[in-house]
Structure formats: structure tokens, C-alpha cells
């Protein structure tokens, strides 16, 4: 039986789709079979991020409406063994799929695949409800910004209401130099505020832009710091105990030092 993990954030533009693509590719590199489902109907992007946009024949809506079989709609990624994409429909809207249909679809897929990753749209409406309906676990992506952290907190509350107990956090696009300067929330700050367990930290990395331009997940770029972070996160998802990267540890330590210093200043 496979596991269904929803990747969500509340706020748009924090890196849900990039995270989904990279974790998906990472899991396939670990020898797992994976289906990525883009639930952002009407604003699909996982296909372009993965470089599979030219191979779409059927989509999620076709599957739930019974126009095609699930297998027919799955796009096999030739670069990553065992990685498949179920793209969103682009010409429909979120109401084209219902939560119970997602539950059925996820159940069906877990019979054959190790992991089902659901790329959730921004927002807390129908698209979010569809995306979380069939999920066993959740990964929340946030950036160290007030708006993203605030929205992540809302999402954590909504996930609890949806009885998703296993919720982990990815802090994305952290800039070590800015944290040091006192101009960016640290990992410790974000965890403190959201009170949710961390599964990884992804440093801000220009390579993400470049690899996404090419439709290649950064995880296969050994020189990319973000790619390395995603590889660690992938391993943690499969249950491996991987310590935080050096970069991340420094941040944590520095974070707490600045915190102590900051508190003294307050008084």
C-alpha cells in the first residue's frame, strides 16, 4: 500500500510545485514508484516544471469523469524510473473534481505505487479541499516571510480539521546571510511560530530558476544546494534519518544565538 502526501502552503509562489517535482524525482531516484498529481485545475504548472508539457493527452478531470483509464492519463517520465505525472486540466476549474473522487483516485493509485504526491493549489477553497481529501500526510512549504508563515499557520489548522495528523514543514528559500544580518526569520523562528515538525530546509538557490527553465528537477544537479536539500528531504520521507545539512545547522545555531541576543535587547 502506497502513501498519499499532499504538498500545500496556503500562499502561492512559495515553491509547492518545485518541491513536488523535486521530491517526486528524488523518490524515484530512491527506487520508489511515484505518481505526482497536479490538482491546480485551470492553472496547471507541474507539467512545465517537470518538462512534460508536450506529452499531455489526458488529465485529472478526464480520469475522474471516466473519459479515460487512470493508466492512460499517467505520463511516464523517461528520465526518472518509476515517476509518473497526472496533469491537471487547464480548461476547466476547481469544481470539476470533488473530494470524494480524489479519495477514490488516491486509493486506486496506492494499490500500485509507493508514493502519491499531490501538488495543492494556493488558497483554502475547493482546490485545497480536493487536494487534501485523499491525503495521509502533509508537507507544508513556507518561506521565511510574514505572509507565507501566516498562511501556513491557517493551513496547519485546516489540516488538523481534516484529520491529517502527520504534518511536516519545509522552510524554503532561506538566505543564511540575511538571517545572520537579522533581516530574515530563522528556521528556529519559523518552527517556533508554527509549532510543527521540520522535514527540511531548502536554501535560496539561483540554480532552481535555471533548472526550471529547462524543465529539469534541480535534484539531479549535484552542484545545486537546493537539489542537495531536496535529496535529504526525500530520504527523510522514506524514513531515513538524515541530519540537517551543515548549512542548515549553522543557521539553527546562529538563529538561536541571535534569538538570545535579541531577547536581551528587548528588556
Amino acid at each position: 500500500m502506497g502513501e498519499v502526501i499532499v504538498i500545500t502552503s496556503g500562499k502561492g509562489g512559495v515553491g509547492k510545485t518545485t518541491t513536488t517535482a523535486n521530491i517526486g524525482a528524488g523518490l524515484s531516484l530512491e527506487g520508489k514508484s511515484v505518481v505526482l498529481i497536479d490538482t491546480d485545475i485551470g492553472l496547471r504548472n507541474l507539467d512545465v516544471v517537470l518538462g512534460l508539457e508536450n506529452r499531455i493527452v489526458y488529465d485529472l478531470v478526464d480520469v475522474v469523469e471516466g473519459v479515460c483509464k487512470i493508466k492512460q492519463a499517467l505520463i511516464k517520465d523517461k528520465r526518472f524510473k518509476g515517476l509518473y505525472l497526472l496533469p491537471a486540466a487547464q480548461t476547466r476549474d476547481k469544481s470539476a473534481v470533488k473530494p470524494d473522487q480524489m479519495i477514490t483516485l488516491c486509493k486506486e493509485l496506492t494499490k500500485e505505487f509507493d508514493y502519491i504526491l499531490i501538488d495543492c493549489p494556493a488558497g483554502i477553497e475547493q482546490g485545497f479541499k480536493n487536494a487534501v481529501a485523499g491525503a495521509d500526510r502533509a508537507i507544508i512549504v513556507t518561506t521565511p516571510e510574514v505572509s507565507a508563515v501566516r498562511d501556513a499557520d491557517r493551513i496547519i489548522g485546516l489540516l488538523e480539521a481534516n484529520e491529517i495528523k502527520d504534518t511536516r514543514l519545509i522552510v524554503n528559500r532561506i538566505k543564511m546571510s540575511m538571517v545572520k544580518r537579522g533581516d530574515m526569520l530563522s528556521i528556529a523562528d519559523v518552527i517556533d511560530l508554527l509549532a510543527v515538525e521540520l522535514i527540511g530546509v531548502v536554501p535560496d538557490d539561483e540554480k532552481i530558476q535555471a533548472t526550471t527553465n529547462r524543465g529539469e528537477p534541480a535534484i539531479s544537479d549535484t552542484k545545486s544546494p537546493a537539489g542537495r536539500a531536496y535529496r535529504n528531504i526525500t530520504k527523510r520521507i522514506t524514513g531515513e534519518n538524515v541530519p540537517l545539512m551543515d548549512l542548515e545547522e549553522n543557521k539553527g545555531l546562529l538563529g538561536s544565538l541571535i534569538k538570545v541576543f535579541g531577547r536581551k535587547q528587548d528588556k
Partner: peptide
């Protein structure tokens, strides 16, 4: 008063906002 780092201000503001939201 002492013009704390923007990071600390962000954290304090978020603390209150999250409590209000929750």
C-alpha cells in the same frame, strides 16, 4: 526603542497575528 532587527519585529508581529487568526 532600540530599533531591533526586522527579523525580530516580524516574529513579534506574526506571534500576535497568528493568535488572532487562531
Amino acid at each position: 526603542k532600540k530599533n531591533p532587527p526586522s527579523r525580530d519585529v516580524a516574529k513579534e508581529r506574526l506571534k500576535l497575528v497568528l493568535i488572532n487568526d487562531r
